[in-house]
Design a protein around this nucleic acid. Structure first.
Lengths: 94, 94
DNA sequence: CGTGTAAGGAATTCTGACACG
DNA sequence: CGTGTAAGGAATTCTGACACG
């Protein structure tokens, strides 16, 4: 129930060109969000970025926030908060 | 229960090079199986083939059969039989 | 029948930079 | 800060063909 096999959602196999078409934003923006550490594609041996469907969902979320005027810095903050919450559950202090 | 939204499994977004790496067979073989109508990738505007995870599963199946000495012709026959069975359920003759 | 290979062209992706603001 | 663009190089993919068997 808690442990789940990695599904297709998390396999990083989509090229940036396709991600751009699917999400509707430019490759430049996608690369910038990576630079700002909001998204983490895999790299092939050659250096090509590969994204998962999960990454695309995350991107959709980022796009929405950006449209609401949220800065990448703030989006990153929220991300870190979430991670800390997850850590808390793993190493719960009593 | 019967109708299901198209999941990530059926989104055709994987390039032939990645399919080759994932399945372990050459691009030549993958293209040949398409020529023999065993597999049906999508084409981008430019003409690049795009495969889904479902396509990859199907390929794995084809590879196994080929290793057992089954010819592409026979594999295709089985495919058509399956389709007919499905059709039978849709247009059942009484 | 099933697969390898060399050939040439066209589209993709990458990085670092300059630009505007 | 967030995004556009031109630049040049490197890797990808495509098709049609010849080869072996």
């Amino acid at each position: 129930m808690s442990v789940q096999a990695i599904s297709y959602k998390d396999k990083k196999v989509i090229s940036i060109g396709d991600v751009s078409k699917i999400t509707g934003i430019t490759e430049r923006q996608i690369r910038y969000y990576e630079e700002r550490e909001l998204i983490f594609p895999k790299r092939t041996e050659r250096g090509t970025r590969k994204y998962s469907f999960g990454d695309i969902e995350r991107l959709m979320d980022i796009i929405e926030k950006r449209e609401d005027g949220v800065q990448t810095f703030e989006i990153r903050q929220d991300l870190l908060k979430k991670e800390r919450r997850l850590d808390g559950k793993k190493f719960q202090v009593i």
